[in-house]
Design a protein around this nucleic acid. Sequence first.
RNA 1: GCGGACAUGGUGGAACCGGUAGACACACAAGACUUAAAAUCUUGAGGGGGCAACCCCGUGCGGGUUCGAGUCCCGCUGUCCGCACCA
Length: 888
Amino acid sequence: MASTPPIDQPKERYNAPAAEKRWQKTWDDRQVFLTRETPGKPKFYVLEMFPYPSGRIHMGHVRNYTMGDVLARYKRAKGFNVLHPMGWDAFGLPAENAAVERKVHPRKWTYENIAAMKAQLQSMGLSLDWTREIATCDPSYYVHQQRLFLDMMAKGLAYRKSSKVNWDPVDQTVLANEQVIDGKGWRSGAEVELRERLQWAFKITGYADQLINSLKTLDKWPDKVRVMQENWIGRSEGLMIRWALDAKTAPKGMNELEIFTTRPDTLFGASFMAVAPDHPLAKAAAEKNPALAAFCDECRRMGTAAADIETAEKKGFDTGIKAIHPLDPTWLVPVYVANFVLMEYGTGAIFGCPSGDQRDIQFARKYNLPVIPVVVPATEPARGEALTKIHEGVCFDGDGVMINSRFLDGLTPKAAFDAVAKRLEGEKIAGQPTATRKVNFKLRDWGISRQRYWGCPIPVIHCDVCGIVAVPAKELPVILPEDATFDVPGNPLDRHPTWKHVTCPTCATPAVRETDTMDTFVDSSWYFVRFTAPHAKTPTDAAASNYWLPVDQYIGGIEHAILHLLYSRFFSRAMGATGHLQKNVAEPFDALFTQGMVVHETYRRAGIAPPQWLLPTEVSFDGEGETRTATEIATGQPATIGSIEKMSKSKKNLVDPDDIIAAYGADCARWFVLSDSPPERDVIWTEDGVKGANKFIQRVWRIVDDVADAKGANAGEKIPADFSPDAVALRKSAHKALHAIGQNIEGLRFNVAVAGLYELTNALSAALPKSGPGLPWAIREATEILVQLVSPMMPHLAEHCWERLGYNTLVADAPWPLAEPALLIDDTVTIAVQVNGKRRAELTVQRTITAPELEAAALALDVVVKALEGKSPKKVIVVPQRIINVVA
RNA sequence: GCGGACAUGGUGGAACCGGUAGACACACAAGACUUAAAAUCUUGAGGGGGCAACCCCGUGCGGGUUCGAGUCCCGCUGUCCGCACCA
């Protein structure tokens, strides 16, 4: 039987760094984590967002990849064929910056970083199949991406258009709308300029409806992400209405103005029209009106930054042009140019109904335009209040009833919408219907041209004779030239002396290659497909993608809620349309989990501005709570403890995973990031927390060591005939933990699973010094269950313990144990007894007790008798196995 | 401005479908072991009252539904996140 060792013979501590290296080698030698497609087993594809090879992994990676690994190992033990691959999102600007700053070739820099980070990831003990590793910068990957591009081009899904683009003056490249944050480049932070350019784009708008509609089917995605995508795609239903222009005031050759509106019901409240400064009508009017031309110029100069928009005054300029109201030919409405109308949305023109729109009412008051209430609440006093407010300059945009609207009066806005649509659809201007129903989207096509070297070359050739010609399939890949120069800004491919000069594949005349490369988000839009057949000669392998897709669980940061996740959803559809995916995998990620960040306190030298940040390793601490102070170790000077923020180089609040792994081991880091905080929330990294995790590791090892030493408890021993109450209690604890922790891992509630493991460990510790029939066997059983439950989270420790328990197999190969259902149910239950909803007593009764028996037992309790004062209860609520409430 | 999420002890958090709030951990305190420290072990702890059994209060604030609310509904406040002139 087990006993605690004498104090004077301390047990050897578990040496994590040494043990971890050993087990990593064992897994590797035995190819334990090679992906298998064993027939008869269900598949499970678990994927974490692959990293950019910046050079070092950070704690965010540790957290992300640990979560995925726990799930992958668990599913593997549950008997699934698991695909758990890793690769590198390896094209990108930092490689070119390194080339400029350190005179190192982007390829060399990238592959060195990959090697360093791969070693770091391997030191974490992740159950990855490294034979499937891919790097997007490798021609063996991007050759297939070029193939996809050409097929998309053939289908019209990739095309070239001249458009206004977001130009980043620092990075000297074009950015997609999604890459402009608050008017600044997502990477450089520079103010983005608008420039007109020819560029390649993907027709993502062709799938706008599908992309928004099928969000509903993604029930295992966070609501937050679905809402963000829905808003980004921005669907709205309305009417395109053509307004005839008054011939006396309109510029020559312009006789109508088309607008888009979602509120045709408010048409009788119209008091002005407004067009964008770039609208053809504005340009035509400006030709004869220098003041108007100046106004348009001023609008164009206005920044696109959020702050500018926030503070910018709503300004307009009366063109003098009048538009004829579509529902009343005698009603003329003035046409303004306004700085708040966007050329990119709808038709670049609107009609303004001041009473129903706050922006319009401000505009109307500023330019003394009529404000006609057309929708008001159906009943008083709300109606009167709304009218007063409109008079004071506050619009009413709620539901209600139509007024001042002739044939619409008395209708609801919705009915009025339909009535207006019906009438205008039937009327004609110049032989065409005055109005048509239309669905509009905010989503724009995805511009992918980048004037960069370190990206996937766009495989087309520009020929003066033939136009745009696809690079023939047999000439793929178009490989990046090695001998590029990075000493001056601009695109190294464009100024390369020879690379771009080719002969046209069609007519053999001299021609030039496209020198733009693809946005790196293209690379990450289909890597999860490539993982299913990373060595295939074609972009995809039908059998493999049919088998493995969709990804069953995708894990990554919320920062990709729109960009990467929307692009991938588009790509899976485009790959279906071009025949690269057979099965219907329009939605590539069945379940999505967005994990929180790893955050840490910040430290800086006291009293110095601007702040001089200090690394956590550069400070020491005194005191606790509010009196806690920090000192800079090197100088002895006081340091200020700042707010808790995302770990970042700039604030220096970094903890290097390598340091933790070297000092405590990977399991300790893994356990820490899984503990305490729910995985979707931020986790605060603390030294105390790391020590606590390490304490638990040593504790598990000590218990296993003791149990392994104890007599009468060997692997595979027969179940005893008799169990003492202590033994039964321990078995129940173990089997309940087994059941609960499995559920918690499946639900990604890792922090709750961790708590459950602490509970089991506590129960086991408490049982060790005891004795009785069957107890040694129960201890042995509980210990093995503990080791198996711990194994997805701390795999090295678990292997070490498994070996110590006498196994010469790997716990990584052991099937997940099954809980015995009989042990999950207790014979007795404790029931709370309430009087008038307040807990007054507890009753411990047989689980099988009947409701009347329970009621009788409760009513017999002293506190209940006293509370009733001899009267009979008004009511007794009995919830079997939970609670009984006596209403006095 | 629009949209979304969240609010529980000193701290991170737990609580399945409305059914004993505070599991588990960290920090803390006391004790054991030690010359001492570390490590380890034991015990304690939401707040207030009482020698005690026990009693009162308690999940951001104000209402409501219910036998019963951290959980559901209405209205606030605060924090965080996303979008941002979208017609």
